[in-house]
Design a protein around this nucleic acid. Structure first.
Lengths: 243, 243
DNA sequence: TCCCCTATCTTTACATCGTAAAGATTGGAT
DNA sequence: ATCCAATCTTTACGATGTAAAGATAGGGGA
């Protein structure tokens, strides 16, 4: 844990001007304050600022660099400030994951809306899924790779649930069935599990660099997206011996 | 990081009798030593003892509890002892992951050998894959969930490569093709990626508890293994609209 | 309008972790 | 028998998460 470059805790002078993150309007205090916009003691929108700072740190320094103190530094507040808003590192990670799931859901829905041909419609969701993960690997990691998430938090639970519901719905439409909320046949469950496992597994392997070997052996310039398409559309040829 | 219960650094008296892990024969020193089997300064097989200690800690306290110092405590040596053998936390994790891959490969091979009917043969590998992950969730986590692995280490690279080769081979047999070492058609690559993504994704979702919702909605008492079977054997019904 | 309560943020403190560096011990080669 | 080098221990330092106590100020009640 000592590898991460950091300017040390006291680098920022105790009252250095806080870099307002363009979305944290410093409130004008009622009492007189020196003209130079000294940082107000009360931030006013620290919670959101911290979440944005966390996302920045995550995509810049990776999951290993995403610490409570680093986020506090990035937001320009004391290292204990996040505690008040998230209680815990788990709390911060969970809320950030919830943000990620919402972004994720929006991206999937948008991709679906943009589809015109039936083939496009069939591939829209999986493609958007993988594309989001590639564009925001840190976020996807937080959402699916961290064991330090608290799904009992309503915001996270709801956002993740919405994601799952969207998936189940899409599978239901593919099978031209109505997927009821509280009961599934084995084949329905298998279809959902298959779709999710396939895309999630592909994404994880891709982000972990474990598909590089395969991609390198494919015809010149075959991209991951192309491989995904082939994986989803190519006929499942044989079901023979197998060991 | 302050939640993990631990008896503190100095709990073990500096020269307390080391609990030999049943596989670390304390060497008899040349020089006279008091009869009571005081711990020898030189362990004699610390490397292996540390790996076994690490596996124990991992399956007992989870990935979060797997620290260099905890492993050293478990093995009964000073907290800096592992450094000499693994250099780094990354080093220890990588070697432990290599151990895991070897166990994993052995389990898969054994399961293949045990198969008798063609159907069993076709399902043997995936089932063994998931079964290993369920039996050793910590190990599987180290192998596939940690970004702190150094694949340039020969032991890890070889073990992981063997695992991949086994998979590619199995897929090749299923398609009744010879999978050449250095070149693949798009459909071949897609078949391999599909098989791997499917099983890996299923395993990750299962270990993360994300399949609980599905399992709970399936007919009474449907197990994860049954769902896996269905996922692999049930006919892929429709390829319709889809969004 | 004034004052005080309380949410918000900062300071201070502590246990733990990874890692580096220096000292102690010992097995084995010379 | 002696010395070297590998192995293990001590000591030290910066970083982290978290708890607890102190400082500040926004806003409601007088």
């Amino acid at each position: 844990m000592a590898k991460i470059d950091t300017k040390g805790e006291a680098a920022r002078s105790p009252r250095a001007p806080r870099k307002t993150t363009a979305t944290a309007p410093p409130r004008t205090s009622r009492r007189a304050r020196s003209a130079k916009t000294e940082t107000p003691y009360h931030h006013g929108a620290l919670r959101e600022a911290l979440l944005q700072a966390a996302e920045r740190v995550l995509e810049r320094d990776g999951l290993a660099g995403l610490t409570l103190r680093a986020v506090a530094r990035e937001a320009g507040v004391s290292h204990a400030a996040p505690t008040h808003h998230f209680g815990d590192l788990t709390g911060l990670l969970s809320e950030l994951a919830a943000v990620g799931f919402r972004q994720f859901n929006v991206a999937m829905a948008a991709s679906c809306d943009a589809a015109t041909t039936p083939l496009e419609a069939a591939l829209a969701r999986p493609k958007a899924y993988v594309a989001y993960a590639q564009a925001h690997p840190g976020m996807y990691g937080i959402m699916f790779r961290t064991e330090r998430l608290d799904y009992s938090r309503p915001s996270l639970h709801e956002a993740a649930e919405a994601s799952f519901a969207g998936l189940a719905n899409a599978v239901g439409m593919m099978r031209q069935e109505q997927i009821s909320g509280d009961s599934l046949t084995l084949n329905q469950g298998a279809a959902i599990a298959r779709a999710w496992s396939l895309v999630h597994g592909f994404t994880m392997l891709l982000l972990d660099g474990r598909l590089k070997d395969i991609l390198a052996r494919l015809p010149e310039g075959t991209t991951a997206e192309r491989l995904l398409e082939a994986m989803l559309t190519a006929p499942v040829t044989a079901k023979l011996p197998g060991c």
